[in-house]
């Protein structure tokens, strides 16, 4: 059983995930960020692989990616950092990156390195379901890697059912039709959408993301979802405060 599945078996509410871009703000911050997040009570972590052309990301994550790349971050280095942490980090780590990075690195080599590092879950925003089924499903299964799919307010009911069937980690519920980025509050329209998804009684764990930025938006999302992911707001915090006071950021949310 994967670490993520064990987590979801034990805890079904208020799951907090935090996203950060590997190599930001400093090249070698991966360890301190992951350990600080774990120690402050985050349930699982999304490690972003910095990419030159992150289509689904807003300005904050784009900026963190270009800083990370100019710091010299690359996929080899990320895997080395993660492998070194393998024994000491207990909470699940999820890799989030764009497909071209994986194609260039080599699909098989990528999977092998994930396995070496104890990575069991990936999010590849530009890998659509149809391509996943025909080109990646079997390979990922061979390496015990689960792929996370996204759904949005525009995703049809039929498609959500299919995604639910295919998911074995969680469903990433995109809170609004937009790119990533902190927005401050959750609208009535979003709540109606969360309710609609909640009432579908899907088998998968539902984690909301995009626009979750603080205690209030996190709690609101958790009324309907199993948990939520905070990304851009954390990147902004790192930009302003560096990596030494992460506990305070998480504390303010879980307080």
């Amino acid at each position: 059983m994967s670490k993520l599945t064990s987590l979801f078996n034990e805890k079904k509410h208020n799951l907090l995930s935090v996203f950060f871009t590997a190599g930001f703000p400093k090249l070698n911050d991966t360890e301190i960020i992951i350990k600080s997040l774990e120690n402050s009570g985050v349930d699982f972590i999304e490690v972003g692989l910095p990419y030159s052309d992150p289509l689904a990301d807003g300005p904050t994550i784009q900026h963190s990616s270009s800083v990370a790349l100019s710091n010299g971050m690359n996929l080899d280095l990320i895997f080395n950092h993660l492998e070194a942490l393998k024994g000491s980090v207990k909470i699940p780590l999820v890799l989030m990156g764009y497909l071209n990075q994986i194609i260039k690195y080599g699909d098989v080599k990528f999977c092998q390195r994930c396995k070496d590092c104890g990575i069991e879950t990936v999010i590849i925003p530009d890998l659509p379901m149809i391509e996943y089924e025909s080109h990646y499903k079997a390979l990922f299964a061979e390496y015990n890697i689960s792929n996370v799919f996204l759904i949005t307010p525009q995703t049809s009911v039929e498609r959500i059912r299919k995604i639910d069937e295919m998911s074995n980690a969680f469903i990433y519920v995109v809170a609004s039709s937009s790119i990533t980025g902190a927005k401050g509050e959750i609208s009535e329209k979003q709540i109606a959408y969360f309710k609609r998804i909640e009432q579908m009684n899907l088998k998968s764990v539902l984690i909301a993301g995009f626009g979750i930025s603080d205690k209030s938006t996190f709690n609101k999302a958790c009324e309907y979802m199993n948990g939520a992911i905070i990304g851009s707001a954390f990147i902004n915090y790192l930009s302003d405060n560096g990596s030494s006071t992460i506990t305070k950021f998480v504390g303010d949310i879980l307080d």
């Binding site: 289509l55 689904a56 497909l99 925003p125 530009d126 890998l127 659509p128 379901m129 391509e131 799919f149 996204l150 759904i151 949005t152 525009q154 995703t155 049809s156 498609r159 995109v174 039709s177 937009s178 790119i179």
Partner: peptide, 10 residues
């Protein structure tokens, strides 16, 4: 092909 985020699928 169409390698697009789910957000663009519709």
């Amino acid at each position: 092909g169409a390698f697009i985020p789910e957000l663009l699928h519709p």
